[in-house]
Design a binder for these strands. Structure first.
Lengths: 143, 143
DNA sequence: CTTAATGCAAACGGTTTGCAGCCCT
DNA sequence: AGGGCTGCAAACCGTTTGCATTAAG
């Protein structure tokens, strides 16, 4: 099945207009297969056929997130990264040398349940990232 | 024992000059008993006896973190929060209504060990935050 | 005295916003 | 044709930086 087509259908269903810019942004997100920043999306689309401004990228990323198409991740202290929400809840392992990203299953289900009981909080969300050096970068550091 | 005195001694031991500004910043961090932003530190010290600039707060927070006195936490997408490093490794549960913060023991030791084996990464660090609504705010929402 | 630390102001980088005009539907 | 969306430029906000002055040791 064509991911882009499906996403575009969902846009239309919600009454969100299908512009060339939106379509292109979605394409980049699909191709990326990993979290990606607004700036990087912009870079990959700049000098392409249609005009595009960074502010448009931001506006649409925010819109898409609000509509549930995207999830944002805070992996660095600087920019937000965005990825398609179709892979379900998971976390990330990031190589601090090469920015390689590995998705991780969530190990926090039991912990969260326990926490609810202990604290009487309504738990809404959690975030977890692991940072390290990937096998490849370990080798290149040695050389 | 006096926390401030001990921290100031450690500053001197490292050859870091003990200024009035530094002393005041440390006081606020000690009193806070929770992560706190540069701006909030500045607010609590503004209009006090000695002069202070926000940039000085930032410079010292970064310095203190580098020296191992502080840990920074990314709880929101906006500002960094800082807390004393004397409590050892832990995480945070934040009420999104009132910003109340509860420290949490780390539940990720086993997961991290497993991850090292599975991925052959060198794991350097991880971050984890839980977000929810505290008991008090749940009640006030109902009213 | 020496030089690290601060005050001050300006820059920076990621993100948001207001407005006029464009182009989906 | 109408209103949502974009281009454009300017603002915004947390943070950093360069330089002259101050003050710690």
């Amino acid at each position: 099945m064509d991911k882009l087509f499906l996403l575009e259908e969902r846009l239309k269903d919600k009454g969100i207009r299908l512009t060339k810019q939106r379509s292109n942004i979605l394409k980049v997100l699909i191709d990326a297969k990993r979290p990606i920043s607004a700036q990087e999306i912009f870079n990959r689309l700049d000098n392409k056929d249609s005009k595009l401004r960074l502010s448009t990228v931001y506006r649409n990323l925010n819109r898409f997130e609000k509509e549930g198409f995207l999830k944002s991740v805070t992996l660095s202290d600087k920019e937000k990264w965005f990825e398609l929400a179709d892979r379900g809840h998971h976390h990330h392992l990031i190589c601090i040398k090469c920015d390689d990203i590995t998705p991780l299953d969530c190990p926090l289900k039991d912990f969260e349940d326990e926490l609810k009981k202990e604290t009487d909080y309504t738990i809404l969300e959690h975030r977890m990232n692991m940072y390290g050096i990937c096998p490849k970068c370990k080798i290149s550091v040695e050389n």
